[in-house]
Design a binder for these strands. Structure first.
Lengths: 147, 147
DNA sequence: GAAGATTGATTCCTCAATCTTC
DNA sequence: GAAGATTGAGGAATCAATCTTC
């Protein structure tokens, strides 16, 4: 209930994330690349079977609202990184489908994003520490998912 | 350059943060309280000497743009949680100053925010793990600050 | 002319209402 | 009538331009 430490683990997490995201965004913009939100969407699609996801699936993976995903896909579609596809089995549903251009763009972004995270985050931790942090956070995620 | 793990520590951090922030926002809204961004601003001011900060100091602590802070303070000022104060020594500068109402509002928000973090985050980790995660993240923050 | 802050225009996000298909 | 997705309207974030004081 009361703050026990000057800076809690949670507060440190928020600050670390904000600082790093800020720097990643800066470097992406500098390289003439889109913002991180686009990367997240493209990467979620690339991981998915057949490179496509239903709108609500994509939204939940990105922890974003459903209406927001419609407009995000609008913008990605407008520049040809994603295509919309109606679901043949359920006429209500729509897929977002990664295009070859979208696949290439994600790879280009990773060339900036990956090394930046490696330098600012991973390089600050030993292998064991990174693994421990990862395990802790996966447990936090699992607990939330269960709820 | 290539992804070495299915879910890296960094990816887990992003997901954990998004899920928890989402739930905190939901509970704050449910309790009729303002959003988390307001809490961050109020808390930054409360920690500061005399409960006030220059606009650019507040902006940098929140990792937010300078123009954004002007409008955020506009809103906080409009409902009496913060007051503006000109700097007597440097006529260009302006302070954001926490009001008593602002202090009370932050405390009210913490009654929701604190226990939520305790439950969703801290309770998932042992004392040692929390301390280890905290130490790691503080190191990440320090490295970024130095740059 | 540079630092500190604000404002105007644009883009983006969010809520509620809508449309379509089940 | 409910699930899935989109749209319209209002609020918030961003960029560049502006104003003021140093």
């Amino acid at each position: 209930m009361t703050k026990t430490k000057a800076v809690s683990a949670w507060a440190a997490l928020l600050t670390a994330r904000a600082l790093i995201v800020d720097e990643v965004e800066r470097r992406l913009a500098e390289a003439g690349l889109p913002e991180l939100a686009w990367y997240d969407a493209l990467w979620a699609l690339e991981r998915a079977p057949a490179g496509r996801l239903r709108m609500h699936e994509l939204a939940s993976q990105m922890v974003i609202t459903r209406s927001n995903i419609s407009r995000l896909i609008d913008r990605l579609e407008a520049v040809g990184l994603v295509a919309r596809e109606r679901d043949a089995e359920d006429g209500r549903g729509a897929f977002a489908l990664l295009t070859p251009a979208g696949r290439r763009k994600r790879a280009d972004m990773w060339k900036i994003y990956g090394p930046t995270i490696a330098k600012l985050f991973d390089d600050q931790l030993s292998q064991e520490e990174a693994e421990a942090v990862r395990a802790c956070l996966l447990r936090v995620i699992a607990a939330r998912m269960r709820a």
